[in-house]
């Protein structure tokens, strides 16, 4: 029973990280119908930014809490700037081109960012310090859940609640939903659509960076390639839940995380991907638009 609980909590932790990244895919897709292949790289850049800041801040003698907060903040800001810039230089000029062009642009951007970090840093795995301290109160439950997992779960759920609030109740959120539903009509009521698209990239990137910091600290090492792997998983989660749907991305990510956790726990970690992608295929056979996806009518 305890083992089962451990697997559930492990799966939810994993899933909530996937969710942070999956939200960026799904929000961007919802608004401009582009699969932003460079999104995983934004996550990776977040992790590297945090690593650099952690080292510097620790050297400067900041305490643990200050280091984790400031490094996360730096990662979020830096990655957001990257996300914003990628959209402006690689996707915006192709806004009126055929759908294939921005897709190829996205793949190009992904390759470029990977290699840029490869050159600027190294191809080796770099150790990432464990930023999350061991809580005293968690000691008796250590075999079920770790402090890191608790921090991840709390941070991700807070981020998601804030995002839900933003999308549902703020003016910006309404503009985002309107733009996703009918871009031309959004313009006709006075929405500056380019601005909404930029904001979407910034929010998606910020969430991905947060995911990058949390997972890097949890796993303990990073390299230039982690964005590709995490990106594929998060993208799978977004498709699983129904790409374009925000609750869908979260649900898909949690389902994916749990599946992997159980596959690892009861079968073997070698088979975790088999189960993950098997699940994707299975769901897409029965629900081609994903769990919560709406069937989109092709826009002309």
């Amino acid at each position: 029973m305890e083992y089962f609980l451990e697997l559930i909590l492990g799966g939810l932790t994993r899933g909530s990280i996937y969710a942070l990244i999956a939200l960026g895919y799904t929000m961007v897709y919802g608004i401009i119908e582009l699969i932003n292949f460079a999104h995983g790289e934004i996550y990776m850049i977040g992790a590297f930014t945090a690593l650099i800041f952690t080292s510097v801040l620790t050297l400067l003698g900041f305490n643990e809490i200050a280091v984790i907060v400031l490094a996360s903040l730096a990662a979020v800001i830096y990655s957001s700037a990257y996300g914003y810039t990628v959209e402006k230089i690689a996707y915006k000029p192709l806004r009126h081109a055929s759908r294939l062009s921005p897709l190829i642009g996205a793949i190009g951007m992904s390759i470029f960012l990977q290699n840029y970090v490869l050159l600027a840093q190294t191809s080796d795995f770099l150790p990432f310090p464990n930023l999350i301290p061991e809580f005293e109160f968690i000691k008796p439950y250590r075999h079920i859940i770790s402090s890191a997992e608790i921090v991840i779960l709390i941070t991700t759920s807070t981020a998601m609640i804030l995002l839900t609030f933003l999308i549902k109740f703020t003016r910006t959120g309404k503009a985002m939903r309107a733009t996703a539903q009918d871009r031309n009509m959004a313009m006709l009521v006075g929405v500056n659509v380019n601005r909404v698209i930029s904001i979407t990239f910034v929010i998606g990137s910020a969430l991905a960076a947060l995911g990058g910091v949390l997972i890097a600290s949890h796993v303990g090492q990073i390299n230039f390639y982690i964005g590709f792997v995490a990106g594929i998983k998060a993208f799978t989660a977004a498709v699983l839940g129904g790409i374009g749907s925000i609750p869908g991305a979260v649900l898909g990510a949690l389902v994916l995380g749990l599946t992997e956790s159980f596959a690892t726990g009861y079968v073997s970690s070698d088979y975790e991907d088999v189960f993950a992608f098997g699940l994707l295929v299975l769901i897409l056979i029965f629900k081609p638009a994903g769990i919560l996806g709406r069937v989109r009518h092709q826009k002309i």
Binding site: R171, K174, A175, R177, A178, Q181, D182, M185, A186, V189, G190, V191
Partner: peptide
């Protein structure tokens, strides 16, 4: 806007 409520659609009209 199909997935905005009637109220939200009206709100969007007053967006600026």
């Amino acid at each position: 806007f199909p997935y905005l409520t009637v109220l939200e659609n009206l709100d969007m009209g007053a967006f600026l």
